[in-house]
């Protein structure tokens, strides 16, 4: 008698389990059929930097509007570490069923050039470059005895190894440091952690030069505690036209920090297309989105996809790979 009861209960249990569990399991199959049904469950964007930073802000803002556009739930997960390589490795090796994407930035090329990873954008199916930073800035304390980048380079020559320049392996800051070295600077290149940690270190007199984006330092410019020597972008951004470009001083240092979204290789191209189109629509047409990125970071809408995007990725890759040997030996 007991055995029958047991069997009966187990059957009910299994059925219940099957019904609740399989409802979800089934959908991941249909995604392979094409993008008609996509997305059927929550999509995850993995961000390699911690919350609060500029990449994180950009992807969260984009996701907010994409959710309405695609009628989907998008979850942002911050997986930090290894200069971004932990996240990029995770996504690269993970499922390519169209529900996980990597929300990175130009650092992907730098990771490859520095040897932090042995792959770059080519290991993924890029979806879009969906935003561009107003430019990374060379920041020093307001009372520091230099006012232009050239003066900084000269100053460092006069005090070799004394000027502490914060740069992270595998990051754009390292590229900046290398280029300046080419221009003759003699810095003591040190590691100072994340963007906000660098600002703290700068304020506290622990380092002398830091690379940051405007969002983090804006208020300090107003209080007069920090000053900007130059903007390393390739062109003057609308919002911050007062700050000189480093390249205008004649120094060969200019790069753009671009935020991108990448899919693991092998993701259904129909899904990539659909997502890419949705991103284009949001960036180009959504006024609220434009307003938000302007208020927070002074950014203007920017998006590149398709072939243009692949070319841009390659160009970025080439630019940084040029210094691959330099990066890896300096380590």
């Amino acid at each position: 008698m007991k055995k029958k009861l047991l069997a009966g209960l187990l059957t009910i249990a299994m059925t219940a389990a099957a019904l609740t569990g399989c409802g979800n399991g089934g959908s991941s199959d249909s995604a392979q059929e094409g993008s008609d049904g996509w997305p059927q469950k929550a999509v995850t964007f993995v961000c390699p930097w911690s919350a609060g930073g500029d990449t994180d802000f950009n992807i969260r803002t984009l996701a907010k509007y994409l959710e309405k556009e695609l009628d989907a739930t998008i979850t942002i997960v911050n997986t930090t570490g290894g200069g971004g390589s932990v996240a990029s490795n995770d996504v690269k090796n993970g499922k390519n069923d169209g529900y996980t994407f990597l929300a990175f930035d130009s650092a992907i090329a730098l990771n490859k050039a520095s040897g932090v990873t042995d792959f770059g954008y080519e290991a993924f199916d890029p979806v879009a470059m969906y935003a561009k930073s107003t430019g990374e800035l060379i920041v020093v304390r307001a009372d520091y005895p230099v006012d232009t980048v050239q003066e900084l380079v000269d100053y460092s020559k006069e005090h070799p190894g004394e000027v502490k320049f914060a740069a992270n392996t595998g990051g754009t800051s390292y590229y900046a440091a290398t280029k300046l070295k080419e221009a003759g600077a003699d810095f003591n290149i040190v590691n100072s952690g994340s963007s906000s940690e660098r600002v703290a270190a700068l304020l506290g007199n622990h380092i002398d030069v830091s690379i940051n984006s405007m969002g983090v330092v804006e208020q300090y410019l107003q209080t007069g505690e920090l000053k900007i020597l130059g903007n390393m972008a390739t062109e003057v951004p609308e919002a911050y036209s007062d700050y000189p470009l480093v390249k205008d001083e004649g120094i060969d240092l200019a790069y753009d920090l671009v935020y991108n979204l990448l899919a693991p290789k092998g993701t259904d191209s129909a899904i990539v297309e659909k997502l890419s189109a949705a991103i284009e629509k949001v960036v180009n047409e959504n006024a609220d989105y434009a307003e938000e990125i302007k208020t927070a970071y002074g950014q203007t809408p920017f998006v590149v996809s398709g072939d243009d995007m692949m070319q841009a990725f390659q160009a970025e890759d080439d630019m940084y790979m040029e210094y691959a040997d330099e990066f890896q030996s300096a380590n």
């Binding site: 609060g52 994180d56 969260r60 804006e218 208020q219 300090y220 927070a296």
Partner: peptide, 13 residues
């Protein structure tokens, strides 16, 4: 911090 920035509030001095 992330939540504040999303609301257009940048903490700082």
């Amino acid at each position: 911090l992330g939540a504040l920035v999303m609301k257009g509030i940048t903490p700082g001095p």
